[in-house]
Design a protein around this nucleic acid. Sequence first.
DNA 1: GGCCCTCTTTAGGGCCTT
Length: 321
Amino acid sequence: MRAALCFSHFQLSRCQIHTFAGSWWKKVHNFSRKGENSSKFQSLGPNICSLHGGHSKRLNNIEGKNIISRRVNNIGQQMANLTQSSLNSSRVEISECKSVHIEQKIVENEDITKPITIIVFDTETSGLKRKDDRIIEIALQDLSGGENSTFQTLVNPDKIVTNSNIHGISEDMVDLPEVPRMEALIPILVQYVKSRQKPGGQVLFISHNCKSFDFPFLINEFRRCFYEIPSDWHFLDAMSLARAVKKAEGSELSSISLQSLREYYKIPLIGEAHRAMADVNVLAQVLQKMTHDLKLTVSGLLKSYAFTETIDNSKKKKNSR
DNA sequence: GGCCCTCTTTAGGGCCTT
């Protein structure tokens, strides 16, 4: 009902917001918390990739607290309070947007005592080339659960979809008036995420192969549409955890693909594979298993699986070889 | 494209994402 109200407000019935019952993050990481609302996060810095300025640097030994997400009971009211002006305010004109180089910056001087909202996400695209291809579907799941904890929508890429055989998303499905284009979707997406954030808090996005795939695609879409990624959005690649699980002694994990992880942990597939929300559901459960196997607290997760350098720097390093 | 591994490091191949 509230979701309907939200979309009525935004005239976006084409997007879907659902309730995700329960929070596995709470259950799995209870051992890292002293109290229901006062999880200790020892370090956020070294492991989180952000987009705001400054050089790539590590932050060490900084303590912070995370208040695990509580159900946002008043989301309907929050969304209803969003005004067009607030939507417009999230739009940042970029006078010079000639470069599409991806610059990942490690969080610097970030106040990590701020509460964190952890969102698993996945994108389906029209192909693998980040410069030429576009996002055609995106799905998000806030691991804190509660009402409106998931968001998913198809996206009209305004270009040919050549890989329908992979995800089953055809041009007929996205080339429809009710399917938003990215430039229309971005402010909605930003506001949805904002509705999941705790006051003054930050957001950690996790996806499989985030660093090399979902993140660059997302950045390119934002830049193409003359938006900036909010400075309090941070990213983490779940594939790093998969490598650690595979490398662990006695592990029988055959590969670090999401499918192998799903089979390894005997997680049933709900929906079609290679559809964004289905993959998000799988990754959310895989994350639970991997962090358990690796005995990772949230702070440990963040400490050990950081982005430590920019993609641009990596490119320079590679080219210099 | 980024990451990891190795038959490596003055490099190259395979995996993963769609």
